[in-house]
Computed example of a mutant assay.
Amino acid sequence: MRAFVFPGQGSQKVGMGVELAGASTAAREVFQEVDDALDQKLFSIMSEGPEDQLTLTENAQPAIMAHAIAVLRVLEKEAGIALTEAADCVAGHSLGEYTALCAAGAFSLADTARLLKLRGQAMQAAVPVGVGAMCALLGADLEKAQALAEASSEGQVCQVANDNDPTQVVLSGHREAIERAVALVKEHGIKRGVLLPVSAPFHCDLMQPAADAMAEALQKVPPKAFRLPIYANVTAAQVVQPEEEQRLLVEQVCGRVRWRESVLAMRAAGVEEFVELGGKVLGPMIGRIDSDAKVTSVVTMADIEALAKEIA
């Protein structure tokens, strides 16, 4: 069995999609459709920067999605590999869950772009700049990370935001609490704590205003039936009902990204191969979660051609 997986925020970089657009009409059509949906020259920012504009959450989220969907469209339209024939399920990391739903037909490309633009704006607006922060704990498992979060909170929000793999957990919350956590890592047997260059504290209770905004948006644009099962971030379990997925997407804004458990759940269901489309971030994580899993990261035309040969 094979899963197609889609990266989250942090995988953006200036120049993303340029090679694909130069080589493929299908890719150019994706980037144009996203630009039209957002009434914005997003592909220009993806191609040329400036980097600080691409890093803005409201731009990074639709850009990462557009890049991954462009890779998928080239695979489907030019290599003749249909998602439903090549994959048994899909999953995505944080915003990547929306990309996975777009890939599986639950949202149109234009609606996915607009939802992610709104999600980025709402997440940024939920907390004043400087009030929140996030840190990566290296050499930490979930148990150690949770103990550190509890010790550092002191009445403020300090929560596990991402359980990425057995060696990397991310905390999110009030800046002071996150700074306390970084200072206390050694006492909790954790190798290192690193403040992340993010503009808001994602996936913690401080994001409730953004969750409310997404609840309203998803009432107007609910997911339709999807062609493949999806593994949801907040449950690390398979979802097949659009109504359930709609609720989980709202919970996901404040909830933990249970990526490690999601990968283990897919493995337990029989997935042997993971194909990451549009990035090279999830592949190394999956390798640390289960070294026996086969992982392929697909970004360039050469990657697409190699994958098409393998699947055909």
Rank of each mutant, 00 (worst) to 15 (best):
S152K: 06
T25P: 11
E216P: 06
A213E: 08
K191N: 14
I81C: 05
A265K: 03
I69S: 01
A210W: 03
A145I: 15
E33Q: 15
H188I: 10
V234P: 00
N162Y: 01
P166E: 10
V131S: 08
E273I: 09
L75S: 04
Q61H: 11
A100H: 04
V240C: 14
A37I: 03
C204D: 06
A91L: 15
C102Y: 01
T55I: 14
A293G: 05
L142M: 09
L249V: 07
L148E: 01
D88M: 04
T112L: 05
Y98I: 13
L196F: 06
I190V: 09
F202S: 08
V239N: 00
D111Y: 01
A293M: 13
A177F: 07
C102I: 13
P229M: 07
M266I: 09
V257Q: 00
K186N: 10
E150T: 15
S262R: 01
E76K: 06
E58D: 12
L148N: 02
I69V: 15
A151N: 09
E244N: 12
A136Q: 04
G287N: 04
L75V: 14
G255F: 03
A268I: 05
A149D: 03
G270M: 11
V127I: 15
G155I: 14
L38N: 02
Q252K: 03
Q246S: 12
E272T: 14
R260Y: 07
A302F: 13
E78F: 13
P229G: 08
A79I: 11
E245N: 12
V34F: 03
R247I: 07
E272S: 14
A181T: 11
P128Y: 07
E29W: 15
D205Y: 06
G49V: 15
T300Y: 06
A86G: 09
V30L: 04
A21L: 10
A140H: 07
S108K: 02
G193H: 03
S297F: 01
R260T: 15
L116M: 11
R288S: 04
N233G: 04
F202Y: 09
T112P: 03
E33N: 09
P284L: 07
G173H: 02
L109D: 06
A3H: 05
G189V: 12
V271I: 14
L109I: 15
L115N: 02
G96V: 11
V263Q: 01
